[in-house]
């Protein structure tokens, strides 16, 4: 059984060689890469990823459920990047170095709002697949419709609590604009719940400023920035 081989979380500075089971381009320039799960983890945690021992690892949020047989990450190709163009070319059977999962971007298990842009959906998708989506609301902002990753599956779990915002084009059923525009237009925001933010720096700081201005205590705001 796979489960018996799964390790408890350990030192994240050690990298472990794993074999890739799939690597699919799920939107232009965006890849979903998987390998057989090696460790237990909590949804929202991250792993360090590297192609070889000579390059410093990069950090990615796990983008799969904590009981899924495979662990996955979601990444886009960064032009001129050292890692992602090569990682995009990996095929099943190729090797990758990964660390044990770690990090404290963990759901409280209570009602929460999750706000993300682009591939920043990854930790929330992991939370949804780990059974944490029922009490929460997810807001996902993108530039084009193709970037609403896992849309059908998320919609089936979260229904009306899944809000999509598209700033680059009008998409039926989605708010036309940025997540900050959508949030600004709301009359009221709950102040007694936790807010989880994940994406690029400017979105995170803008949304955080907006939430604080609307009376949400900063202690209730947790952010992860992709850099």
């Amino acid at each position: 059984m796979i489960v018996s081989m799964i390790k408890k979380s350990e030192d994240s500075s050690q990298l472990l060689r794993v074999t890739i089971t799939s690597n699919k381009e799920i939107a232009p320039g965006v890849y979903y890469l998987s390998y057989q799960r090696t460790h237990d983890f909590l949804a929202g945690q991250v792993i360090k990823v590297s192609l070889d021992e000579n390059n410093p690892p990069r950090i990615y949020s796990i983008c799969s459920g904590n009981l899924d047989p495979e662990t996955s990450i979601l990444f886009n190709i960064k032009e001129g990047g050292l890692l992602t163009p090569k990682m995009a070319r990996l095929r099943p059977g190729d090797n990758l170095l990964v660390s044990a999962p770690y990090g404290g971007f963990i759901s409280s298990g209570q009602s929460e709002w999750w706000i993300s842009t682009g591939t920043g959906i990854a930790p929330f998708y992991s939370m949804i697949r780990s059974g944490l989506g029922n009490k929460c609301r997810l807001i996902h902002g993108v530039r084009s419709e193709s970037q609403f990753y896992f849309q059908k599956e998320i919609r089936s779990v979260m229904g009306e609590h899944y809000m999509t915002c598209c700033s680059g084009e009008e998409v039926p059923g989605s708010f036309y604009g940025r997540v900050t525009d959508w949030l600004s237009a709301l009359d009221e925001l709950p102040t007694n719940i936790k807010y989880y933010l994940c994406g690029k720096a400017l979105m995170v700081v803008d949304v955080r400023d907006l939430l604080i201005e609307r009376g949400i205590p900063f202690e209730n705001i947790m952010a992860e920035i992709y850099f």
Binding site: K200, A201, V205
Partner: peptide
């Protein structure tokens, strides 16, 4: 120019990267 780290107390972080 700017910063990606987004620290709550820093003015530079507020301008993004």
């Amino acid at each position: 120019v700017g910063c990606k780290m987004g620290c709550l107390f820093c003015m530079t972080g507020k301008q993004g990267f």
